[in-house]
């Protein structure tokens, strides 16, 4: 059927009985049972309680804040343990004191050589401290040990007891050799 484009007029001459009879015709004979009402409303209550309960917008924020707090705490703890300039200086001084104490009990050749006088290790008296001084001292120590006519005391009198232990031996040679090869021997 082709629909005509005529607009519906509310005053179309219809009797109110038309609407009444239609409503009677399509009115369900039975009402909605209370069980259906209860089922719908229970479902609504469950749904609205579950989906509309107060959300916790700061749930993630709280986790992040907790993690940040741990990181900040750890950072501050490390800062507190890090030495300040003053404490670093004190620590260095303590370390130096301990080191000095250790070396005093058992001096290392290199450390001793740094405090001995350049003239003391200039065995050949040529004005320089080099490996030849160590070589010369080594020859003298060697000859003393093989030639009984040369006593160790004579070597001591020459001032070759470098480490001052009362003996002129390989230890003194080592000290001279160490002084000869030191990089900063200019300050000796």
């Amino acid at each position: 059927m082709i629909e005509r484009k005529e607009h519906y007029d509310e005053d179309s001459g219809l009797s109110p009985k038309f609407s009444e009879d239609l409503n009677t015709l399509f009115k369900p004979h039975l009402s909605v049972p209370p069980e259906v009402d209860r089922a719908v409303l229970d479902q609504a209550h469950r749904h609205l309680t579950r989906s509309c309960k107060p959300r916790r917008p700061f749930r993630w924020a709280a986790s992040i804040a907790a993690a940040a707090a741990v990181i900040i705490f750890a950072f501050l703890f490390n800062i507190a343990r890090e030495p300040t300039a003053e404490t670093a200086r004190e620590t260095a001084q303590d370390t130096a004191r301990k080191h000095t104490f250790r070396t005093a009990r058992k001096p290392a050749p290199a450390l001793v050589s740094s405090v001995i006088a350049e003239a003391q290790v200039d065995i050949d008296l040529n004005g320089r401290v080099d490996i030849l001084d160590a070589f010369k001292l080594a020859r003298h120590v060697e000859s003393t040990s093989t030639d009984r006519t040369k006593t160790n005391l004579s070597l001591q009198k020459q001032g070759w007891d470098i480490n001052g232990d009362g003996l002129v031996n390989r230890n003194d040679v080592d000290l001279v050799a160490s002084a000869a090869v030191r990089l900063d021997k200019g300050v000796l």
Partner: peptide, 22 residues
């Protein structure tokens, strides 16, 4: 509007529904 108009027109043409029209 046009569908409603056509529906009422059909009803008016039907003798069984003619009583609903003034």
């Amino acid at each position: 509007k046009s569908r409603l108009h056509n529906a009422l027109h059909r009803l008016r043409q039907n003798h069984r529904a003619r009583d609903y029209f003034l």
